[in-house]
Design a protein around this nucleic acid. Structure first.
Lengths: 242, 242
DNA sequence: CCAAAAGTGTTGTGTGTACACCCATGT
DNA sequence: ACATGGGTGTACACACAACACTTTTGG
């Protein structure tokens, strides 16, 4: 570091934490967006996020902003696995001042009450299908694209996919998570074997079963297991898009 | 973002860019460290890096600091592939003030003149074998550990390994890069086939050959190819550590 | 002639894929 | 009965690991 740097010598930097929170609803990947109330970009959609406070880490700030701006349940926000995506630091990202943004991604299950109409900013939060996202404020479209690519890659070699599922889920539900994120189809028998062959990926819930599509054989239920990485990885088919 | 935020209302944040630059020398992985001249941690070793200036992106700052603090050739620094590792934002990382650090990693070939004795800070830069690194300033030991893990993983599915090699290299040299970073041994015939079977990973230099260990058959030379990712990946052996 | 390093060939084991088939449930 | 989704079995192709073998150089 350079000698004699004076923290007040330059225009100060602000640091924000922004989040790309994904869920799977009805076979389509959705992202959580909020409608901006103030300038700049008033009325535009943006990723949830906000300024990191003086005594916070970026991750702590991300959790706080997520709870404040969206109606997500406290417990979910507290236990959520946040993955740091990358930091965006181009000088003119924000027209007001110099803002460096640390971006995070998270996966949540499809919630019965989408982004519940809580108090404050929460009313402006909404799940939006990825292909219905149009203009976003700032460089959030770039962040969102990076996040989408990252989670697609992460599904290949981590157990994150269970994060999209409710606490107990069927293998069919888990498979549809992969198919939705990757926009492809997978062979059911082979998917099943691969998942079950990976120790600690999922654990059977003894004796439990649930009907899924109304018809058909009731499916066995599974819980997320202790494993976090996938050996061997679950590779997505190469050229195939559905 | 919260309403009515005043950029000057809080103690300002500073943003730094720090680098973990690796090379392979004599069968051991080395990292570029600089000796700190000022407090805090005066006299301690640290990763090269420094403050991001008001009109710079973090990556631009990383390149500038690398050129300033080390004797690395300008051309190398300009063309170097910088990979953003992650951002470290815990409130008390730096005892002086609130500093958020964007960390980068880079791989460079073994240089004839290690960290050349240029002017200014460059004299304090040195390559250090990873297992001889003791205490580092700030949380740089954590950053270094994260960076080491990251490059190990990156070698599996990207073509970055050629970044450790001179412009023209033998397959034996490339293999020793993998063996050094992973601290393992690989089967030469199989390594060879895998590398050559991946389109665009390396290109043969027609007719060229070079002696390596003094004895033995001269090895054919290769250049880095246009590919950036490895399909299929080059997986490191599981439990094996040499 | 031997040691050392590059390069080629071969073979068995395992993994992934494709697809046929059976099971249980609602209409 | 039949459609729908869950679950099992199997055969083929291919990839990879292991290791034997040839080639070319220096001492």
């Amino acid at each position: 570091m350079t000698a004699g740097y004076d923290p007040y010598a330059f225009e100060p930097f602000a640091v924000t934490a922004d989040l790309a929170v994904f869920t799977v609803r009805g076979g389509a990947l959705h992202v959580l967006l909020i409608r901006r109330g103030q300038e700049p970009y008033a009325g535009a959609w943006a990723l949830p996020g906000g300024f990191v406070l003086p005594r916070e880490s970026a991750e702590t700030a991300a959790r706080r902003e997520l709870a404040e701006e969206t109606g997500l349940p406290d417990r979910l926000v507290a236990e959520l696995h946040l993955e740091q995506l990358r930091t965006y630091s181009e000088p003119d990202r924000d027209p007001r001042m110099r803002v460096v943004s640390v971006a995070f991604t998270a996966l949540v299950p499809d919630l019965p009450e989408p982004a519940a109409e809580g108090g404050g900013d929460a009313a402006h939060a909404r799940w939006t299908a990825l292909d219905e996202v149009s203009e976003l404020a700032f460089d959030h479209a770039v962040i969102l694209a990076d996040a989408h690519e990252r989670i697609g890659a992460k599904l290949e070699y981590t157990c994150l996919a269970t994060g999209f599922c409710p606490p107990e889920f069927t293998l069919g539900e888990l498979q549809s998570v992969y198919e939705t994120v990757w926009d492809t189809t997978l062979d059911r028998p082979n998917f099943r074997r691969k998942v079950l062959a990976t120790p600690g990926f999922v654990e059977a819930v003894p004796g439990a079963a649930r009907l899924t599509g109304g018809r058909g054989k009731p499916a066995a239920l599974y819980r997320p297991g202790p494993a976090t990485t996938l050996h061997p990885p679950l590779l997505r088919p190469e050229g195939s898009s559905r």
